[in-house]
């Protein structure tokens, strides 16, 4: 296998929309979205966010994921050099599929959110048998 080297990316900031109570920047998390026969799976990179600081909101087909980071530095620390910015995460999606809201699963580990959105029964592909007679 060929060795693939990772390239750094500058985090993309969310365009300001209304005013927030919490100070600081907000970034767009990088996501992978894939579809299986059963579900739509969304994986988002949100480094610095622990499981209890993620919030998910699904209204109709509108999904909002957001995460708040915990304190990036300890008390009494001063920054000597900064290459990346820290801040919260926010991203909105419009889901084309019908989702079964009652079976949504979310799992957070090592700063990565994995969201499994099971398709509603009627959205699942169904094989239609053609009868010959």
């Amino acid at each position: 296998m060929e060795e693939k080297e990772l390239q750094p990316k500058v985090k993309e900031e969310v365009p300001a929309k209304g005013e927030r109570v919490r100070p600081g920047r907000i970034f767009v998390p990088a996501v992978d979205i894939y579809e299986t026969a059963e579900a739509l799976v969304l994986v988002a990179d949100m480094p610095g966010v622990s499981g209890d600081r993620v919030s998910l909101d699904l209204k109709d087909s509108h999904l909002i994921i957001s995460g708040e980071i915990s304190q990036p530095m300890g008390e009494g620390e001063t920054l000597l050099s900064q290459e990346y910015q820290v801040g919260d995460y926010y991203r909105e999606f419009h889901l084309g599929e019908m989702i079964d809201k009652n079976r949504i699963e979310a799992f957070m580990s090592d700063g990565v959110l994995k969201l499994t959105l099971p398709k509603a029964e009627k959205a699942k592909p169904r094989k239609i048998e053609v009868k010959t007679g």
Binding site: E5, L6, Q7, P8, K9, V10, D45, M46, P47, G48, P72, M73, G74, G76, E77, T78, L79, L80, S81, Q82, E83, Y84, V86, S109, D110, G111, V112
Partner: peptide, 24 residues
């Protein structure tokens, strides 16, 4: 923009801290 991973370096009286975002 540099070499992956990007790092932030900070210090307090007793330590130097090097941090990098490495999700997953």
């Amino acid at each position: 923009v540099g070499v992956y991973p990007l790092v932030n370096i900070s210090e307090d009286r007793d330590y130097v801290y090097v941090r990098a975002e490495l999700p997953g």
